[in-house]
């Protein structure tokens, strides 16, 4: 099956600003998890909180200021809290490439789906998964807050 997800987006901002928004614990909660517990540092396990939809452990794998940040987690709505490295997980990587002044390409890669057991993916659908709805709600909050 497909092992990798890759998505790209062009962002009109500096690579420093984009990197900080991903790697700085105070900024990442503005667009991704709602809360963050623990040290958000390479080699540490942090817990992302998604409000009422639960919490997910994240192992910070690597960080190279202004161009690369990666972590491992258990994807989908099967929120897993515990030692991420002890279970089947995926690697999430952000790559920032400066194209021009104040313009960067951000490439998101998530890989390792081949290791996930089928039952796991199945459960992710049977459970009333809130990930999607949660993101929509968060985006809505964001737009309203910035009007």
């Amino acid at each position: 099956m497909q092992d990798v997800i890759q998505r790209e987006i062009i962002i009109h901002a500096t690579k420093e600003r984009i990197y900080d928004s991903i790697a700085n614990p105070e900024l990442v909660v503005l667009w991704f998890p709602e809360t963050l517990e623990g040290d958000y540092m390479v080699g540490e396990q942090t817990i992302f909180g998604f409000g009422e939809h639960g919490k997910t452990s994240v192992y910070i794998a690597d960080a190279k200021p202004y161009e690369y940040f990666s972590y491992r987690w258990v994807p989908g709505s099967q929120h897993f809290v515990g030692d991420v490295l002890s279970v089947a997980n995926t690697l999430v990587e952000f790559r920032i490439e400066e194209l021009a002044d104040n313009c960067c390409k951000v490439t998101l890669t998530e890989s390792g789906f081949n290791h996930l057991p089928r039952e796991f993916m199945e459960a992710s659908f049977q459970q009333n998964s809130g990930g999607w709805e949660f993101m929509i709600a968060r985006l809505g909050d964001y737009f309203t807050a910035n009007k």
């Binding site: 991704f32 989908g76 993101m135 964001y142």
Partner: peptide, 19 residues
């Protein structure tokens, strides 16, 4: 499963862009 995760990432990246 993959399609769902892809659309989640799509949304998250747009949120990152907005921010």
């Amino acid at each position: 499963f993959i399609a769902k995760l892809e659309s989640q990432w799509e949304l998250r990246l747009h949120a990152l862009k907005r921010l």
